[in-house]
Design a protein around this nucleic acid. Structure first.
Length: 670
RNA sequence: GCGCCCGUAGCUCAGUUGGAUAGAGCAGCGGAUUUCUAAUCCGCAGGUCGGGGGUUCGAAUCCCUCCGGGCGUGCCA
């Protein structure tokens, strides 16, 4: 049937890229710029249409003013794909449907199996990425708010590296800000020496919370009268608004809605202030500390100013605190199984800020406005503030200094900022200012993400309203995973239906760590990063569905096949070209495995790790279907057994690699 | 006031520059187990893609408008 011989394929084959190349060649007779049209080749949305589809005939027809089906026919006539596809056909308004030849697909999947990179080609022009993520304030314990940046940023680093790019991960920690004044003040007045010696970071965190509580207490008390007055005024406005008769119903409704929102906001502010006051008043120790330190907020700010001015005592304390704080962060990163290439925080750039400001000013990019030095960007109301009226520099200044460093020292082609979506205006300003400053060749990208919500639909907090600490979050996930691991292992039975657990306590705990932390990461990564998502313990560790657990289990099942069959996987892999595709489930799985490079490329396109989670979930599903339909160890003949073992082995490698690129580990037994 | 984002099945979410009958998971219902690990698989049901208008061969996607929600708005980072 296929008279055309299978063309010698390259050592690594990306099917989609190859098809696009073939289409680009065919399209060059129809349009001077075929690339965007060639890129309209994509996986078929429904398997009944084949394996791939090209949607380019319709838009091209519009451009050329001719019937789309004619264009589709013309493309097919010029298209040279006989070695990889059966004859393409035109469907509907002008879709071109493509089905890969079985012999070609078989050859491609054997190539992938023989490749350590699992088919991923190295790029013709590798880029250098600097990825800025996690970036906690070192003086405060990490909380759930840092999770998304950390997890998404780490996954992007791994994936871009796997694609062959050069990546520098940079933890731009907050180690020079106002929090340090608070810690220094706390240390000078409230430190518990023995607690500090036992656990320095824990004590510093306590001091931070204490100073923060006390200063908020005084702020709240000072603001109370004003808050009450504002509330009363707003209530009065609302009453007056309700009585108005000069507006039509729609205008009135809109006005009242706004007035009610104002009243509610005032009520909430007031309630929050009263709560802060009551919390201190109710605690005799706190109350006496508060009374003894009425100007704590200002004095803490003074400590910050003194630090920045080079005060020897404060500088000494800062130098003592920072390394310990960083060490504490390291232990969390270690538990998350990740690390940074560089950790250059705000303090690193501090000596350069005056120069940056001068430079911007003398170049006419920054101008004086109300006593502050500002960069104004067309289309934005607020400027990027470089130097405040009081002479202090801002994070905008630091960010510009950081860009200069990343350009000059790290030679970045692209700088990615994995930061909360709420800071998008800051990044608009920052990137515009950087371009004015001369950095026009760099890709600047705010890889923004949404908020983690609780099941009540509000930002994820503890019942008391505090941020959820990251460590306790991890602990809780691991504990929940441990219960699942215990239940599952306890339920295992041998051939005589007797209990036959496989895992001892240490092994169970190791699996729980892998499952629990993998579950947290996956829950985050599998959502589109831009959307807010609702955090749910139940869904995160569910045994079935689109979860890390499901894929980790698929991997463990694969390991089980080889153990039970006594198959040496390394030896198995020596059998080149032994995969034979006969059953439909084998073909579907093989095609999916050949798409692994596409999945990674899909992530890189717009820095969306959920493209990879989706791919892995589909892969695990296809494996389950295959496994259900095709006996492996009990295959009818030796060649089929070997073929299926190789297919299963490759699937396991891809699941393992894919999860590891998301920062998620696997266990051989679960 | 100005600006940005969001609204898709009961719930949680996908949906690539506009493409074929809008897809998953969970929950629900019905099946499959002498298990190559059931932490599984197969099937069924479930939607006016917030409402309305427009652009065109074609709109969840682009434009306008209204409704509902979130966030940000000059000297915190």
């Amino acid at each position: 049937m296929h008279s055309h011989p299978v063309r010698r394929i390259h050592r690594r084959m990306n099917i989609l890229a190859e098809l696009r190349r073939r289409f680009a060649a065919a399209l060059s007779t129809l349009t001077p710029d075929p690339r965007p049209f060639a890129d309209m080749v994509r996986p078929a949305q429904d398997t009944k249409f084949g394996d791939f589809q090209a949607n380019c005939a319709m838009p091209l027809a519009k451009q050329l003013g001719r019937p789309p089906r004619d264009i589709a026919q013309q493309i097919i006539a010029a298209l040279d794909v006989a070695d990889l596809c059966s004859a393409p056909d035109v469907a509907g308004p002008g879709f071109i449907n493509l089905k890969l030849r079985d012999d070609w697909l078989q050859s491609a999947v054997n190539q992938s199996a023989a490749d350590d990179r699992l088919g991923v080609q190295t790029p013709a022009a590798p880029r250098r990425y600097v990825i800025d993520f996690s970036s906690p304030n070192v003086a405060k314990p990490m909380h759930v708010g840092h999770l998304r940046s950390t997890v998404i940023g780490d996954a992007l680093c791994r994936i871009l590296r796997a694609l062959g790019h050069s990546v520098v991960s940079d933890n731009h920690i907050g180690d020079w800000g106002t929090q340090f004044g608070m810690i220094i003040y706390g240390y000078k007045h409230f430190a518990d020496r023995s607690a500090y010696e036992r656990n320095a970071v824990g004590e510093l965190a306590r001091l931070y919370r204490l100073v923060n509580t006390l200063s908020e207490y005084h702020d709240a008390r000072a603001a109370l009268a004003q808050l009450e007055a504002t509330l009363a005024a707003r209530q009065q406005l609302l009453t007056a608004g309700e009585a108005r008769t000069d507006l039509d119903a729609k205008e009135l409704k809109k006005l009242l809605k706004k007035l009610r929102a104002d009243v509610t906001a005032s009520e909430e502010e007031l309630a929050s202030a009263r709560k802060k006051i009551a919390a201190v008043d109710a605690d005799a120790d706190l109350k006496s500390s508060a009374d003894a330190h009425p100007h704590i907020a200002r004095l803490a700010r003074n400590e910050t100013a003194r630090l920045h001015a080079g005060d020897p005592e404060n500088l000494r304390l800062w130098q003592e605190f920072v390394p310990q704080c960083i060490a504490a962060l390291e232990s969390i990163y270690q538990r998350l199984d990740m690390s940074f290439d560089v950790t250059l925080g705000e303090s690193y750039y501090q000596p350069q800020l005056a120069g940056v400001a001068e430079n911007l000013k003398s170049a006419g990019i920054a101008t004086d406005s109300d006593g502050a030095l500002c960069v104004f960007v067309e289309g934005n109301n607020a400027p990027l503030i470089i130097r405040k009226t009081d002479g202090a520099f801002t994070y905008g200044t630091t960010d510009l200094a950081t860009i200069a460093y990343r350009e000059q020292e790290l030679h970045a082609d692209a700088i990615l900022y994995v930061v909360d979506a709420r800071q998008s205006e800051h990044f608009d300003l920052l990137f515009a200012a950087a371009r004015k400053w001369g950095y026009t060749q760099t890709e600047f990208k705010h890889v923004s993400f949404g908020t983690v919500m609780g099941e009540d639909g509000r930002p994820f907090k503890t019942r008391a309203g505090d941020n959820v600490g990251l460590e306790s979050l991890l602990d809780e996930a691991v504990a929940a995973a441990r219960r699942i691991v215990d239940d599952n292992d306890d339920a295992k039975r041998d051939d005589q239906d007797q209990p036959a657990p496989e895992l001892d306590d240490a092994a169970r705990q190791a699996v729980a760590e892998i499952v629990g932390i993998g579950g947290i990461k996956y829950a985050d990564l599998h959502h589109n990063r831009e959307s807010d998502y609702v955090f749910s313990w139940d869904k995160m560790l569910a045994k079935s569905g689109d979860t890390a657990t499901y894929m980790q289990y698929a991997y463990a099942r694969i390991g089980g096949i080889f153990r039970r069959g006594g198959v040496d996987r390394a030896a198995l892999r020596q059998q080149a070209d032994a995969i034979r595709l006969t059953a439909p489930a084998e073909r579907a799985l093989a095609l999916q495995l050949c798409r692994f490079p596409d999945a990674l490329a899909g992530v890189a396109e717009d820095y969306r790790p959920n493209q990879l989670t989706q791919y892995l979930f589909e892969t695990a599903n296809l494996l389950s279907t295959f496994y259900e339909q095709c006996p492996v160890l009990k295959a009818d003949d030796e060649a089929t057994r070997t073929s299926r073992l190789l297919l299963v082995d490759l699937t396991g490698r891809i699941i393992e690699r894919g999860l590891s690129l998301l920062g998620i580990r696997v266990a051989e037994k679960m």
